[in-house]
Nucleic acid binder design. Structure first.
Lengths: 207, 207
DNA sequence: CCTACCGATCGGTAGG
DNA sequence: CCTACCGATCGGTAGG
């Protein structure tokens, strides 16, 4: 009953709430998420849940952060060990496919960020802002990786990094839809085929 | 007060409800749509709104049908006059870009179907089924158009229609996100650049 | 198409 | 972390 133990337990409860919240929101959306449903799932009272966050919006933002960490751990971190440039870019793209697979289990309802982005893209407010900030961060990282590959001569010198980012985002949004809406078993293979074209190496010699 | 006039007016009211419902749902989602909000916007009572449909779900399905008609009128019908094959395929893709522009005004919150697809892709039920059916219909039409262009020798003979459909859907989902989430003024141009590669004509002569 | 109403659930608070 | 409660809103119904 020391304050230290109590704080640690509180932290664990908070994490449990966020985990469950992410699972629900990936299916029902961040707005479809309700405190009552969350409390029932966790065997807690609504006040107990809300006490950790104050308001639903704070909980939604915390869930976004938690989902962000999951994405990082599934895609960016495993690729961090690969050599920068085209090799790492391809590693990121491959982990990204795995991350979206139904069996991966990160999010039962498909990519949390695709759902959140579409849910809030026409509204204002702190959640939309947070989604935009996260997306821009990842787009920037992706563009940096592409730029490195171009500078190293691994991608054609006339590659427009932002254009490639644009096409990659579209490709993966499409992959998520093919998996979630159609359970298309060929979706991964189709993504890899498109990637082979988008990330085709520069020819060894200049003409 | 003849029954004929009454029926016509009822029809007009029904259309007004659906129009407003589509506008709300494109921003808030089909689940975020509420009868109360709809009634307030239209200056009607909740019972008056619900009387036309019976249940919220029926109204949601009717809104999906209405949005479907808007998409058809904006994309498929204008392209119907173009010669089948690559020319029509390009016309469809161009009208599709226009349809997604913010200024187009079809849907204030971006493509209704992208929103609905992501909203219901992890759930079951009649709305999800209706979204899947519509999407499959359009994918099939698109694939048919591609097949025609391949058979006419306008696209490379080794083109996989379903692969191209997959990449096109991703491209346009990405375009919708770039417009709605980032208000990216270059999004249309980027889409056209990607299209130029995806729909590059077959070389005139075989090697 | 309306008023008047139903039970259920929403986010959130008071007080412990 | 709980019980007990708040006003507001939800989808939907009865009756006209």
């Amino acid at each position: 009953m020391s304050p230290r133990k109590s704080a640690a337990e509180s932290r664990r409860t908070r994490d449990r709430i966020i985990d469950r919240s992410i699972a629900i929101a990936s299916v029902e959306g961040l707005d479809g998420l309700t405190i009552g449903r969350l409390a029932t799932d966790l065997g807690m009272s609504k006040a107990g849940v809300l006490g950790h966050f104050g308001t639903k919006e704070t909980l939604q933002l915390a869930s976004l952060d938690g989902a962000s960490a999951i994405f990082s751990r599934a895609v960016w971190e495993p690729a961090a060990g690969t050599a920068p440039g085209l090799a790492r870019l391809r590693a990121i793209c491959e982990y990204w496919i795995t991350y979206l697979e139904r069996e991966h289990g990160a999010f039962p309802g498909g990519c949390f960020f695709t759902t959140a982005a579409v849910e809030f893209d026409a509204r204002g407010g702190p959640i939309r802002d947070a989604v935009v900030r996260r997306s821009l961060l990842w787009r920037r990282r992706l563009a940096n990786e592409i730029r490195y590959a171009v500078d190293a001569g691994e991608l054609p010198s006339d590659t427009d990094p932002d254009q490639l980012v644009f096409e990659l985002i579209g490709l993966y949004t499409g992959l998520n839809q093919a998996i979630q809406l159609f359970a298309d078993p060929k979706a991964q293979e189709r993504t890899r085929r498109a990637l082979a074209r988008l990330l085709a190496p520069a020819p060894e010699e200049a003409r």
